[in-house]
Write a protein that binds this DNA or RNA. Structure first.
Lengths: 144, 144
DNA sequence: TTTAATTCGGATAAATTTATCCTTTATTAA
DNA sequence: TTAATAAAGGATAAATTTATCCGAATTAAA
């Protein structure tokens, strides 16, 4: 469904949000450890998230990643997925056809549109805050 | 969503079904041309479909691929997807966690279960016959 | 002002997926 | 029985994704 990079990206963002709720800024090192992801690769993905203004980064000692409380509400999963995997999950044809649309639909088009709009709606309506607070309260888990 | 291999596999199966409705057996060559896919790669995928009893193959002159009328009903998309991509699309965690389940859910678990069961239901309820007849009647298209 | 901690950015490597090529096997028809 | 046709199977190559490494830039604190 999502690429590995995107999975790590979402997990990282959620973890950063969780820690930011406590006013803690976190390093790549800590993030990778806590979300159980490869460190250097995670660093690359965090660069993308930073460039896309999904998280904030600060260099130097005491530096690291954080997310402002407000951004936790405005940043939806859709933004993260788009930043990392692009929009193919929203736009493309389920069977990989270039010229598939309502006018000239592939055999799966209509059924696929349903499933995908379901997914899109879910991603567009799910904020980082929502995910982070689930973790905070102990309802959900991130590691392994 | 699906791998390229799986996209080609579905398209190939639908095309074979369509031609089998006319009593025509088709070669890899024709299939690849008609569904606009790389020939040799498509041949590999057809081997998988054959091994999984999704299509029938016949060697030698006048040989090729075909699907029995009955199989067009019993073969659902889910079977093709499972044969090529495995069951990760049904089973795995959206965030790639190994130990994610209802007991110890990842932050996205519940929302993801919804989307995915939607997809699973769709794949389990969609037969090759349904897809092939859409094409036959000119409601849908397969190429490009 | 130096040192150390941290992100950033480029280069490269490993793994996986996608794709091609070629030989073998089966089978039909001449 | 032979020649031709088509799938099967193995080896390999190309492309993409995943992952690592290392030096540069930034910055806080000693």
């Amino acid at each position: 469904m999502f690429s590995k990079a995107c999975e790590y990206g979402i997990r990282a963002a959620v973890y950063i949000a969780l820690q930011s709720l406590d006013g803690r800024r976190v390093s790549v090192n800590e993030i990778a450890e806590e979300i159980d992801s490869p460190m250097a690769f995670t660093a690359k993905i965090l660069q993308q998230l930073t460039k896309n203004n999904i998280v904030d980064s600060v260099k130097g000692p005491t530096g690291g990643f954080e997310i402002e409380r407000e951004a936790m509400d405005t940043v939806k999963l859709s933004k993260i997925v788009k930043a990392i995997d692009g929009d193919k999950i929203y736009v493309g044809c389920g069977l990989g056809l270039k010229e598939c649309n309502a006018d000239k639909p592939c055999p799966l088009h209509d059924k696929f549109v349903d499933v995908r709009s379901n997914l899109r709606t879910m991603l567009q309506n799910t904020s980082l805050y929502e995910l982070a607070t689930g973790l905070e309260v102990g309802l959900t888990y991130l590691k392994r």
